[in-house]
Design a protein around this nucleic acid. Structure first.
Lengths: 365, 365
DNA sequence: TATAATCCGGTAAGCGCTTACCGGTAAGCG
DNA sequence: CGCTTACCGGTAAGCGCTTACCGGATTATA
């Protein structure tokens, strides 16, 4: 009586209906809270469900409802050396995914995740497979080429993160441009530095292109001179940052008074390389990062950087995707504001207050 | 012609069949590689699929095949302060999940993940919802009570991680007992320490109970005296470890010659607290950890600990689940060997070789 | 008490796919 | 050249669920 029927094969709504002595329609209605079943009917159904440990099959529900309540998330895995520090990036991915999940849970969606190695070949195939199992897809940075995204968006609603919208896909990103502009203004307007440099990220990252361009434009706007060229090409890693500095120094170039870095990791490498050569930060050269990773505040000196609302990014991405899924709409490009975090690597004294220059992060287009 | 039909509503196999001028059966067969279609048939289908950007609906396939090719993964999120260091644990979760994914991908499965906050209320409901969307579930440590697991396993195949099997659910774990035993033997047999202590983890963790018990048993087996009691109760955190030491010291107890810690985080706190009181590791007290987190090797002194094959754990969990799903079988309890990592916190000299005592980690039951 | 309005709950169709079954055509054989 | 054997590919059933539609029972209204 406690264990009435030892689940032979699959348990269906018919089994529940039988046990409860009602029709499958009633079972379905009770389970969905539709209609107004008689109290007794409801009770009998609920009891049968409980006694049988019944769970509705998601596939059948999805087929009938035309909604799977599943969102696919695709991202790149760092190499296999997950244990070798440096992998802050995957932490961000995790935070963003968490944000997506928060948004998703509000709508009863779950996350179907698929990570792709840097050298996986059949990425497109894997993503297509995912597409079939989800109502829509969220793609992290640098997952697919623009045409790849466009093609994918033909099959299923797609939201990209930190990219740019295509005719069929939506995009959500943080306001990288504003972040860089805020940094430039702080360095030039508040500190009076006249010469700047920018250690860039991977050349193939849209994010990086945005940052580079904002750097050049804003520097020109505030009348600072900038040092550029292939020597400034980093790759988002500490080693890349250190390498840029060493190359620069070896070529006996004079370093600019302030150097912006594409991300905190890069800044870390830059600061380290500078220290090796006996160059003081921020006395000789001011440094800024981007991202505000956990260790940023513990660097020597504590790193002035830009904080991106990662979790909100994920949540927003889901919301946008959801509106596309349910209504077919959705804003093509959503931009989230970033926050300037002033610490000491820019030359500000410990415990300093926010910058004084007009309109810090968040302004501008 | 390039963009033939602007996907009105949902694209189905009928649309493909129409366009290719064949029947839906042929389309399905081509897409599944079943039967031996004529070359021309195959080509026409493939072309139509390409031109329409068609993807088969996963829900319909799942319903028809009785297989969703989705595995649900449930785990606990650390608090919301993801940015406050200390959260190594979620890193492990991530590595394990990665392992699950590796296993899953071999079978064309994807991961449906659902994380649960420490104070979420409707955990059971959320998990049940997941169950409907997946072919089986993998539960990380401490997700559900034993009866909760048993009930869940009534609805869907369940594999627990680092727990213990129930009549209906399977379990995969690392050989914690062996790890602790190897540590005890190393400390007692190789170093000659006669008195030991064990700073435990959360009381509600099955893993912790296993470790505690192994500690007591093995210590007795090799004839070492042990110090126990509520004062030794930690909670897997550095703060917890430090707290245990402070309490112990404040009560003017004499510390044992060697202290095993429930995990590396705890060891970290313990070493820190010891240093604060001027007690030297390993000269005055030897310390060991468990897990081998990334920082373990960078501690002062480098931490002797146990490495668990996290990724293999995940992959194995999937394999076990898969065999249960497909064949109904599956080993009830799978135990993976762990590895003793000897560094300096136990008293070994830098760059020392593996321990000499007979049968290190991996032996015993 | 007869009739209309209301309310429940059952029957059956259909979601998009896979596949058993079967008929038609081409190839093999005597 | 006629019959058997293969081989393709089409038709239709069914996977488990939701829900439109409808009929019977109940209650309200006259």
């Amino acid at each position: 009586m406690a264990e009435p029927k030892k689940a032979k094969g699959t348990l269906t709504i018919y089994d529940v209906a039988n046990r409860a002595g009602v029709s499958i329609a009633s079972v379905s209605r009770v389970l969905n809270g539709q209609g107004s079943p008689r109290a007794e009917t409801r009770d009998r159904v609920m009891r049968a469900v409980r006694e049988l440990s019944f769970v509705r099959d998601g596939a059948a529900r999805a087929l009938s409802n035309g909604l799977k309540e599943v969102v696919g998330v695709v991202f790149r895995r760092g190499g296999e050396e997950l244990f070798e520090g440096e992998d802050e990036s995957f932490l961000f991915i995790d935070v963003i995914n968490r944000g997506i999940e928060v948004g998703a849970q509000r709508r009863g969606f779950d996350l179907l995740i698929s990570s792709v190695g840097f050298n996986d070949d059949n990425v497109a195939a894997r993503i297509a497979a995912l597409a079939g199992k989800a109502d829509g897809l969220i793609l992290h940075d640098r997952m697919l080429s623009t045409v790849g995204i466009a093609r994918l968006a033909d099959m299923v609603p797609v939201v990209t993160l930190a990219g740019s919208p295509t005719p069929a896909s939506l995009n959500v990103r943080c306001d990288n441009g504003s972040g860089i502009r805020a940094l430039v203004r702080h360095l030039v307007l508040d500190h009076g530095y006249r010469s700047l440099g920018y250690v860039s990220g991977r050349a193939d990252s849209p994010d990086n292109r945005t940052r580079s361009r904002a750097f050049e434009n804003e520097a020109a706007a505030v009348g600072a001179t900038i040092d550029t060229g292939p020597a400034w090409q980093g790759n988002y890693s500490a080693a890349g940052g250190a390498n840029v500095i060493e190359t620069l120094l070896d070529s006996r170039k004079k370093l600019p008074r302030a150097i912006l870095c594409a991300n905190d990791q890069t800044a870390l490498g830059v600061i380290h390389a500078l220290a090796q050569r006996g160059i003081k930060v921020p006395q000789d050269v001011a440094i800024t990062g981007f991202d505000d990773v956990p260790v940023a505040r513990h660097l020597h000196p504590p790193l002035t950087t830009i904080r991106q609302p990662m979790k909100e990014l994920g949540a927003k991405a889901f919301d946008v995707l959801y509106s596309r899924i349910s209504a077919g709409g959705g804003k093509a490009d959503t931009v989230l504001p970033v926050e300037l975090i002033v610490r000491e690597s820019c030359g500000c004294p410990p415990g300093s207050s926010p910058p004084q220059n007009p309109s810090p992060a968040g302004a501008g287009t």
